[in-house]
Design a protein around this nucleic acid. Structure first.
Lengths: 134, 134
DNA sequence: ATTAATAATACTATATTGGTATCATTAATA
DNA sequence: TATTAATGATACCAATATAGTATTATTAAT
């Protein structure tokens, strides 16, 4: 059971690259540059960055000399943010009989326990920022 | 992102039912009985219990008067055990460029951080036993 | 011999994952 | 203003995973 999906993984690599280079260089990056440096599949990464742009993690510039840039400081971008974009909210308490048979998720001993664990996990994932990975 | 899959969920329900009833009653249960009580799809649950039997969580008895029984005390059956049966080892540190491009998982800042979190998570999941859900 | 249970295995439908392809849009600049 | 170099939107596709169902074999009690 993989916790991180391929697009989350690629997104993190791209963001870390951008954060690293933004310190020395200009801060707009083309997909081609990132693909070359990080050796990721071009069209797939393109779609990933587009999604990050749509979700407000990146800003995109169309046209010649365009590309993508970070909107916020790498210190502000957490793992939780990125996972949420590609894999949705991490939900430890999901119930497969919800509504049908189970009376209430709050009376369920399992979900009650998992809820606490999920909160702890989220707190830890939130502590991992792009900046912390440089 | 659902952490628990449907078969893990159904397995837990079945195991909790068996643990609960084993206290008052005989301890061999047919699939039909569990299906009726927990309202789960019969053939699907059957395959789930067979898998639990194969993995040493349940004992199975063929023939008339047969069924399934718990092998170990409900205190000894942890959530980690059950997740492992149906979803494999929970791996927070999986890397999608392993071997190809990434030099070493141990030099990777992200994986290093996730490894610690994964250990904590595992410890917590291990503390949830079937007995603790009664 | 009959009956009532699991075992093994194959099959199916649907969703998700991982990725590719195409064409439209935009903006710099020669 | 035409060219060029970038992203945007969208559709498509293959492989795998998920969530089951169906069939036949085996086993053990009575």
């Amino acid at each position: 059971m993989n916790f991180i999906s391929r697009d989350t993984d690629y997104a993190i690599r791209a963001l870390v690259y951008m954060a690293k280079m933004a310190k020395k260089k200009k801060d707009i990056f083309t997909v081609d540059e990132i693909v070359k440096e990080e050796r990721l599949p071009e069209r797939f990464l393109r779609r990933i960055l587009q999604k990050l742009a749509k979700k407000g993690v990146l800003r995109s510039y169309k046209g010649k000399e365009g590309g993508f840039s970070l909107i916020n400081s790498p210190k502000k971008i957490t793992l939780t943010d990125i996972i949420k974009v590609f894999q949705g909210e991490v939900d430890l308490t999901n119930c497969f009989l919800k509504g049908k048979i189970c009376p209430n998720i709050r009376t369920c001993a399992l979900r009650k326990k998992l809820k606490g664990i999920g909160r702890g996990l989220d707190r830890e994932l939130r502590s991992i920022t792009i900046a912390s990975l440089l």
